[in-house]
Design a protein around this nucleic acid. Structure first.
Length: 286
DNA sequence: CTGTGGTCCTGTATGC
DNA sequence: TGCATACAGGACCACA
């Protein structure tokens, strides 16, 4: 699924298109992506007509499209969601789920193969949708309290990688960038977070921020057509990945073959030489 | 409270 | 070729 750099690429692509545009018509082609709107797909569509978008915003992997009246359309891309900007008469994508006509020959499309993500209307959510109040600030949020985050993360007993993926601790990091950050920081994802010193935890978080910043300037990571920007173009960061998707290939630092092991119904990738699981606690003060 | 495992979907790649 | 299986970038919820 798209992680922070991919979602931010989408937000930046939507901003000039959506801001100030009025919604002329909405068509819901599949009910699942609007399942959180309890009044149903037709009510979702009719509720939006005539309203006007303000500038799109993002926290972690959540995106919201504020309306000028104070509500918002809250969006999550899940594993395979895309926003596309097309002409209304352009051929429909195979998994197009929701169409939003914006006038001036612009149609916003929510396309989603697996439909883990979706859209909902957030009442009063223009500033911050209450539905995502539990999502922590991400590593690019100017109001992030890094010291508090380090303290919070370094106090967990959970494996370090699980802490990185916990969106209520720090948001925006997914499986790819967690693995990449751990490799950069030379830490093993199975190490209990509270076995690390706060400084070590801080280094991991800085590595996560750095790798995501690098991905962002390349338009994000994509392995196939599942992640694309609003114009349907792929990013190029996959060429820069050090461990993700490189099982069996040599570590760029030491040449040791990259390991891939099952983790929470997916996989973890790491260098077994550079990223040792410490046998003894390095932070015995805890 | 914290930590963990299963589940929601569809599609593609791989192996027999 | 046909079929079965594994796997895919996430979040949520139930349960221990």
């Amino acid at each position: 699924m798209p992680e922070l750099p991919e979602v931010e690429t989408v937000r930046a692509g939507l901003a000039p298109v959506l801001t100030g545009r009025r919604i002329d018509a909405v068509r819901v082609l599949h009910p699942r992506p609007v399942r959180r709107h309890v009044a149903g797909p037709d009510a979702f569509a009719s509720a939006l007509v005539g309203r006007t978008f303000a500038a799109p915003r993002r926290r972690g992997k959540y995106l919201w499209l504020p309306l000028t009246d104070g509500d918002a359309v809250l969006a999550h891309l899940g594993m395979s969601g895309q926003f596309r900007v097309d002409a209304p008469d352009a051929p429909l994508q195979r998994h197009a789920r929701v169409l939003v006509d914006l006038g001036d020959g612009v149609q916003l499309r929510f396309v989603d193969q697996r439909m883990f993500g979706g859209l909902s209307i957030s009442t009063g959510g223009a500033e911050l949708p209450p539905e995502i109040a539990h999502i922590a600030r991400d590593l690019f949020d100017p109001e992030l309290d890094m010291d508090a985050l380090v303290e919070s993360a370094a106090s967990r007993r959970s494996p370090l990688k699980r802490v990185l993926l916990d969106q209520t601790i720090v948001s925006g990091i997914g499986n790819i960038y967690a693995d990449e950050a751990l490799w950069r920081a030379r830490e093993h994802g199975e190490t209990p977070a509270n076995d690390l010193t706060p400084d070590a935890v801080r280094r991991v978080l800085h590595a996560a921020r750095d790798v995501m910043a690098n991905a962002l300037v390349q338009g994000g990571t994509s392995f196939d057509a599942l992640y694309v920007n609003v114009n349907g173009e792929s990013g190029y960061f996959d060429r820069s990945l050090a461990v993700y998707g490189r099982a069996g290939q040599p570590c760029h630092r030491c040449g040791t073959p990259i390991s891939r092991v099952p983790f929470a119904n997916r996989s973890s990738h790491f260098c077994p030489q550079c990223q040792r699981k410490p046998r003894t606690r390095r932070n015995p003060s805890r």
